Amino acid sequence: MTQLQVAIDLLTTEDAIALATKVAPYVDIIELGTPLIKSEGLSVITAMKDAFPDKLVFADFKTADAGELEADMAFKAGADYVTILGSTGDSTIAGAVKAAKAHGKAVVVDTIGVQDRVKRAQEVIKLGAAFVELHAGLDEQAEDGYSIQVLIDEATRAGVPVSIAGGVNLDSIQAVKESGAVVAVAGGAIYGAKDPAAAAKALKEALN
């Protein structure tokens, strides 16, 4: 079954926990966005895990260097997942995987900015990533002609565990599920909704 991940791209711990409280009954993974972690530091990871110990907490570090060190920091703070950039070297990813194994946690490789996402996804799974995030960032989504269908097609071709992030909403989530993605990542479709709880509930029902 495809899991639902909420990407929280807010800037304060208070706002992030308030949103998570609304949507927690309907999501499997709570992602703390890179701007949130840069704004609040490691403490937001600990606060979220303390507030929702039954949820998987995803720290979107987008690490590009010192993989073992930064992953260790995330896991010690309470993260279950940490992201490493797919555009970085294999040694950085391998280092993060080493830290993950030491903590009994997991690494997700984020393909934002990677030209051949399918090829890189296949490579990094061999390095020990739990799954690979096929990711079109906010800037890419804002470009003329962007379509999430590109990511859906890549997921179908990848042949390895992937998540899809980059415009997941009620219109696209069924296709995301059918692509074989293990996780559907919804950001603006939830936190930008008038009723985030209702939006998360609808997405979860669509996946089920």
Rank of each mutant, 00 (worst) to 15 (best):
M1K: 09
L4Y: 02
I8R: 00
T12S: 09
T13W: 00
E14N: 02
E14F: 00
D15M: 08
I17R: 00
A20T: 04
T21S: 15
A24P: 01
P25Q: 04
V27Y: 06
D28P: 10
D28C: 06
L32A: 04
P35K: 01
S39M: 15
S39K: 15
G41M: 12
S43F: 04
T46P: 01
K49W: 04
F52K: 03
K55T: 12
A59I: 14
D60A: 08
D60H: 08
F61L: 14
A64K: 08
A64T: 11
D65W: 11
A66G: 11
G67T: 11
A71I: 13
A74C: 13
A74F: 10
K76Y: 05
A77G: 12
A79M: 13
A79E: 13
D80V: 11
T88I: 10
T88Q: 14
G89Q: 10
D90R: 15
I93V: 15
A94C: 11
G95R: 07
A96Q: 14
A96D: 09
A96F: 14
A100F: 10
K101C: 14
A102T: 07
G104R: 02
V107S: 12
V109K: 10
T111E: 08
I112E: 13
G113F: 13
V114K: 13
Q115N: 07
Q115E: 14
Q115K: 02
D116H: 04
D116M: 03
K119A: 15
K119D: 15
R120N: 00
A121M: 05
V124A: 06
I125D: 01
G128S: 07
F131T: 07
F131N: 11
E133V: 00
E133K: 03
L134D: 10
H135I: 03
G137S: 07
L138S: 07
L138G: 09
Q141Y: 03
A142C: 13
E143C: 14
Y146H: 08
Y146N: 06
S147E: 14
S147K: 14
V150E: 09
V150M: 01
L151M: 08
I152E: 06
R157H: 13
R157E: 15
V160P: 12
P161F: 05
S163F: 02
S163L: 07
G166E: 04
G167K: 05
V168N: 13
L170W: 07
S172F: 01
S172W: 06
Q174F: 03
Q174I: 12
V176A: 02
K177D: 13
A181K: 00
A184G: 02
V185I: 08
G187W: 02
A189W: 03
Y191M: 01
K194R: 05
D195E: 07
A197F: 07
A198D: 08
A199H: 00
A200Y: 05
K201P: 01
K201E: 13
K201W: 00
K204C: 02
L207W: 06
